[in-house]
Write a protein that binds this DNA or RNA. Structure first.
Lengths: 339, 339
DNA sequence: CTCTGCTGAGAGAGCGCTCTCTCGATTGCG
DNA sequence: CGCAATCGAGAGAGCGCTCTCTCAGCAGAG
């Protein structure tokens, strides 16, 4: 049985430091907060007192008067969806890069029943200064809830209905055009696409962008099958596509996950990739690399986007009256063996 | 230019509720905190006042007096390592499952220079109640730092040197034995293993466990090559192994990532999996599924382990004097096409 | 009928910090 | 040399909550 572990001693308070330094609490506070109007000699005395006492400001007391929690929430889509995806980690990384140097904490949570109310409550209780929402469903009431309460919030992805809300997105249309240009450059003329769900902005834009770009390459009528951004839906979509257009030689799949589902189907139908069919995905997620062959895909600058979301959020926290903004990033094409 | 967005109004305070209900602050506090000694009628009056005012307790004020931050940190290994791995998400999920129902926030951070000091400072400032440390390096000073400061902390993985610290791990030895039994059951007799780095507990235990179990199957001298838990090191290790033992027909690789690196090398050497060589991995990470063929592997109950870590941590927070404990979970074997 | 014991609610003292207000000391200028 | 302006530091009032202490009110015992 180990010896009793006594609770850690209470850390020093401002008054103790003040007493040691022989000054008032206010002066110590000034030194701690870097206020300029403190005599250099006195400042040094105080600093010495701070280090001998091992003083660290109590954050609850500070929060109480400054009305800043010093932390923001990152709300991820419900469970399963994100877990297998490095996207998640890239987002965390991007946000952390901005938030940590400023001493702001990142509180992680996943969307789900009750999350919205909880986040709003946390915000109103002063436990949270703002929230970054990743890939909310269009039906999700949370963004509206937050906007209505005039609480700082930033969305990833253009909202389905135009709202006075700050968001960050990749230029979906341009990304799809990148894929189109690449497929055209590979000399493919019997081109088709598997789109995402057409009730999402990303689904719509990627399809529209791809069609517009292919039209510019002289192919105005690209056949398409709708998927749901999942592996199974990709497999099913490519089956439908092959049934109607067995001679397809160029395929744009609007997400890597769907492409990952589609590739084995192509193989089963005796279509070799990239020789018989060139395949291009979207997202550059881990599944792009897990594909056989590795997938050429449109990459979003996820870290940069996440960092920008964090920046926009902190701006909102600092300047509550600020109007909503949106920032759109440029995608790039990552060429691998599938094309 | 949109209209000015006024800052959200200050939420009601305890006194306002008290005034509305015609009682004292203390009584409202009792109702909010569910203290039993409040007359039922009065309680109802107060509750009505709470809902008409939309009262929500200010958490900073509460923290100030209760000395509870209501949040714990999850410290993940530095960047790259975790990002591609669903392991990360499973851990978050497990922790969140315990922490969220209790209204405790999960603060996410990654290890790195300065993280340790920051976490200790946050703990001492009362911004954090405790920390869950995932896969710390044995050289990491953070666990010792925290233990020395008598701050609540839980580790994933048995520490390299025995310490009075709470940790959770999977039974590595038993996991390796599972792999050994499976390979033996497949009738393989020319068995080898690629171990993890032997300066880590997991590396040691998996090798020792595998050897012991193979010895029990009549193979006391299993050849082995040391890897570093990375894909490249797995590829290099299997090269070395094949050079010395070209006739290997059963291979235990101490991590999926290494197995993922090793499989293409086996193929390149003309060794078919599982016909010529049976391969078993460890971790059941995403790379196990990304392997071709999908990898038979030893699975850790990551969510359960993460949940247990959270529980142990919260226990420590509630009862500071509590001695260190450790919990060991049983692994399972996931059989796929590689065996 | 008085005294004790108990229950339920109010008063008020903090928790540790920030920040405004005030004021003494120093400086500059007429 | 006197007065206003400036600078630096202290006093003290909160921030919103919890929790102990106190006390009023009432029931039951003697």
């Amino acid at each position: 049985m180990p010896a009793d572990r006594p609770a850690p001693p209470r850390p020093a308070t401002l008054d103790e430091v003040a007493r040691v330094a022989g000054v008032s609490r206010a002066t110590v506070s000034r030194v701690v907060n870097g206020v300029a109007t403190v005599d250099a000699a006195l400042r040094r005395t105080v600093e010495r007192a701070i280090s001998t006492t091992g003083y660290l400001p109590n954050s609850a007391a500070r929060s109480l008067v400054t009305r800043r929690a010093g932390s923001i929430a990152l709300v991820l889509p419900e469970q399963g969806r994100m877990l297998g995806d490095p996207f998640f980690g890239r987002v965390v990384d991007g946000v952390l890069g901005v938030v940590r140097p400023r001493g702001v904490h990142l509180v992680l949570t996943t969307a789900g029943p009750g999350t919205g109310e909880q986040v709003v409550a946390d915000l109103r209780q002063g436990r949270l200064d703002g929230a970054v929402l990743i890939h909310t469903h269009s039906a999700d009431p949370l963004p509206a809830l937050l906007t209505a309460s005039r609480l700082p919030v930033v969305l990833s992805g253009r909202p389905a209905t135009p709202t006075a809300i700050t968001w960050v997105d990749v230029n979906q249309t341009a990304g799809a055009a990148l894929a189109a240009d690449h497929i055209a450059a590979r000399g493919r003329r019997r081109v088709a696409t598997i789109s995402g769900p057409l009730d999402t902005p990303a689904g719509q834009d990627r399809l529209a962008g791809f069609r517009a770009a292919m039209a510019a390459h002289g192919l105005p009528d690209v056949p398409h099958a709708e998927g749901a951004f999942t592996g199974e839906s990709g497999a099913a979509a490519v089956e439908r596509l092959l049934a109607e257009h067995p001679d397809v030689d160029g395929l744009f799949v609007a997400s890597d996950l769907m492409a990952h589902g589609a590739l084995p189907v192509l193989r089963r139908h005796g279509r070799r990739v990239p020789d018989d069919v060139v395949v291009v995905g979207f997202d550059d997620s881990s599944s792009a690399l897990a594909c056989d062959p590795p997938l050429t895909t449109v990459r979003q600058p996820v870290e940069d986007m996440a960092a920008e979301m964090a920046r926009l959020l902190l701006d909102q926290v600092d300047q509550p009256g600020r109007p909503a903004r949106s920032v759109v990033f440029a995608p790039t094409l990552v060429v691998r063996e599938s094309s």
